[in-house]
């Protein structure tokens, strides 16, 4: 996959405050890239840097094949950004808000009308097209802002907390849009605190605090940090000798008891699980089920971010 965004030591200072410190990332075309970090980590500043809204203090970046600092207006034409606040013209209707921005992106005539209709429908706002935005709920405004960011069909869409304040229906609409944009080959750069959402949507994730701490696919991050955990349910309950037998099975890195189950950390459950079951049956255990327990991205996030903080 082609690289659509590359930064090299991208740095931003505001006076004495170092907001972004030597950021090095590569993002591919058609990828949903998660950008996760605590509040104040510099995520919004990074987005503004990559959208050519603020100038870097050091380093550089290539965005959609264009050089930051040299092709800023063209970069802004090639990317879309959902800002922290929807920032809509409240007295204008939904369609007029989008028409205004469509005109600034050089759209006109039928093409403009078709885009406005398409994105209003995609966001489920077709029926409200002629209603002033001032009457919209927070969630509707957020969907409008996403429609505005995607309207000119940018190569890279930067979304800052896109589902914040949305009800489950609206959040699903937004997630569906992100998936469909990625399928069209557009890149989505997603900043979110919703780790479940990031886990479901993102091809790769960067944990960030002023600079990238860790970057990989969610599954590889899990495997690297926690290995894979298998839960073996033994009825009526596991005995200490069962645990001892499990610990002797080849491929088991660690095993412990938890809530009436034996939990086993292993690198390759497909090879280890049959041997585990065999060892327990040989020890006289009744195995009710064996299942892989998925470590949440929240656990991974906390381990990475707190680990990085402690290392400082």
């Amino acid at each position: 996959m082609a690289i659509v965004l590359r930064t090299e030591g991208l740095t931003k200072r505001f006076g004495k405050l170092l907001a972004v410190d030597g950021l090095d990332i590569e993002v591919h075309e058609g990828e949903v890239f998660g950008f996760l970090g605590p509040n104040g980590a510099g995520k919004t500043t990074t987005l503004r840097l990559l959208c050519a809204l603020v100038a870097p203090s050091g380093g550089g970046a290539e965005v959609a094949g264009l050089r930051l600092g040299r092709d800023d207006a063209r970069i802004r034409a090639s990317v879309g950004i959902l800002t922290e606040h929807p920032g809509l013209y409240e007295r204008l209707s939904a369609a007029d808000n989008l028409r205004f921005f469509a005109a600034l992106y050089g759209l006109s005539g039928r093409e403009m009308e078709a885009r406005v209709e398409r994105y209003l429908e995609l966001m489920g706002l077709g029926a409200q097209r002629d209603i002033p935005v001032a009457t919209f709920s927070r969630g509707m405004k957020q969907k409008m802002a996403i429609a505005r960011a995607a309207l000119h069909e940018p190569r890279i869409l930067f979304l800052d907390e896109p589902t914040t304040g949305l009800d489950p229906d609206a959040a699903r609409t937004v997630r569906d849009l992100i998936v469909s944009l990625a399928k069209e080959g557009r890149t989505v750069f997603l900043c979110t605190h919703n780790l479940d959402e990031a886990d479901r949507l993102c091809d790769r994730i960067a944990f960030f605090r002023r600079s990238v701490i860790r970057i990989d696919t969610p599954d590889r991050l899990r495997a690297e940090l926690y290995g894979r955990t298998v839960e073996v349910r033994v009825v009526p309950s596991p005995r200490p000798d069962h645990l001892a037998r499990v610990r002797c099975v080849e491929g088991v890195r660690e095993a412990w008891l938890e809530n009436g189950s034996i939990l086993v950390r292993t690198d390759d459950p497909l090879r280890t699980d049959p041997a585990l079951v065999r060892a327990l049956v040989d020890a006289g255990a009744e195995v009710a089920f064996v299942t892989e327990r998925r470590v949440s991205l929240e656990d991974v996030y906390l381990k990475v971010v707190h680990g990085a903080a402690e290392a400082r």
Partner: peptide, 25 residues
């Protein structure tokens, strides 16, 4: 997929901004 969106002409920018500002006003 369009690589870079078309750039609005200065006239389009002025008329769009004026129309929006006047409606808001």
């Amino acid at each position: 997929m369009s690589a870079v969106a078309a750039r609005a002409t200065r006239r389009t920018i002025v008329t769009s901004v004026c129309a929006r500002e006047w409606r808001e006003t």
